[in-house]
Design a protein around this nucleic acid. Structure first.
Ligand SMILES: [Mn+2]
Ligand SMILES: [Mn+2]
Ligand SMILES: [Zn+2]
Ligand SMILES: [Zn+2]
Lengths: 150, 150
DNA sequence: CTCCAATTGCGTCGCAATCGCAATAACGCC
DNA sequence: GGCGTTATTGCGATTGCGACGCAATTGGAG
C-alpha cells in the first residue's frame, strides 16, 4: 500500500511540475492516509513523527499548493481552525458532533438540487457551497418509564 | 425613527441589566440600522463617524455581549472575518455573490426539513447549522445571437 | 450629589497563518 | 557520478483578527 501511495505522490508531483522533495513526500503520505479532518498543527504533529525536521511553514505551504492544484480541500468549521481532507470524487457535506468534535460525512442529492434551484431563482449560478450541521447525540429513547434524566 | 430605535436600545439594555452607555447607544444604533452584514472593523468605522472616541475593543466587547444575549448573530463566511446582523425572528441562510461580496438572504423549509431528517438518521439532533452558497451572476441569456462576451 | 461597580480606552497579548531570506536540495544535463 | 540552476525549505519575524489586563471614567441607584 505504501508503494502505490508513493507512486501516486510521485505522479501527482510530476503532473503538476513539482519537485518530489522529502517534506512533500511525507506530508502527502500523511494526508493520504488520514481519513479524519486534521488541521495544520495536527498534520505537522503526524509529519514530525516521521521526520522531525519538517517545519510547520512547509506544511502550510504544501497544503496551500495542493489546494490550488485541487488535490485537497480546506474546510473551516466553527472552531475557526482550517481542516483538510483529500478531495474525493464525490462531493459531501458534514455533520459535526459538538460534544466530541467528530465529523460525519453525508450527501443529500435533494439538498444539492434545492440549492441549485434557489441560486437559479435568484439569478445566480453556484460556485461552491458549505453546509455544516452541528449536532449532538440523540437521547437514547428509554424503553418504558425511564427515570427523568438529571 | 431614531426615537423608536433609541427606546428599543434603552429597553434592550434595561431588559438585560446593562448600563445605557454612550458607546453602547451608538454601537447598537449603528447595528440596528445596518441591513448588510458588516464586520467589526466596518462597524467601528461607522461608529467612529458618530463618535470617534469609541475604541474597537469596545465594539468587539459589545458585539460579544449582544450575541450572548441573543440580540445578534455572528457569521463567519469564507473570507474568515466575522460578520454580524441583528437576529430576526425567522432563521435564514445566505447566498454570497463572490464577485461583489453582496449577501442575499433566503430560507428553504425543504432544506431545513431535510437537514433534520439527515441528523435524525445518523442518531443526532441539530444544535445549529450553517449553509452558505457562494454564487456568481448568471450570464444573461442573450436574445438571439448576441455577440460573444469579452 | 455621592459612591461604587460596570464599562471604557489603551496598550499588550495570543493564535493561526503568511512572508522574507539565506541555506539547502531536486533534477535536467553532461 | 558531478555541475549548475532554481525551486524549496527552515527559521525567525510579521500580519491580522480578536481578546485581555488595568487604570481611568461614568452610569445610575440611593
Ligand atoms: Mn469530509
Ligand atoms: Mn443574514
Ligand atoms: Zn453539499
Ligand atoms: Zn438554515
Amino acid at each position: 500500500m505504501t508503494n502505490s501511495a508513493n507512486s501516486d505522490i510521485a505522479r501527482l508531483c510530476k503532473e503538476h511540475g513539482l519537485r518530489l522533495t522529502g517534506a512533500r513526500k511525507i506530508i502527502m503520505q500523511v494526508l493520504l492516509k488520514s481519513n479524519d479532518h486534521p488541521d495544520a498543527v495536527e498534520l505537522h504533529r503526524r509529519v514530525s513523527k516521521i521526520d522531525s525536521r519538517v517545519a510547520i511553514a512547509t506544511v502550510y505551504r504544501t497544503l496551500n499548493m495542493l489546494r490550488d492544484k485541487g488535490v485537497l480541500e480546506r474546510h473551516t468549521f466553527a472552531d475557526g481552525r482550517a481542516r483538510y481532507e483529500t478531495t474525493d470524487n464525490e462531493h459531501h457535506d458534514h455533520l459535526i458532533n459538538v460534544e466530541t468534535g467528530d465529523v460525519v460525512e453525508f450527501r443529500s442529492d435533494e439538498i444539492e438540487r434545492l440549492q441549485e434551484e434557489i441560486a437559479r431563482a435568484h439569478g445566480f449560478e453556484i460556485v461552491n457551497h458549505r453546509l455544516e450541521i452541528y449536532v449532538r447525540p440523540l437521547e437514547k429513547p428509554q424503553r418504558r418509564a425511564g427515570r427523568a434524566k438529571a
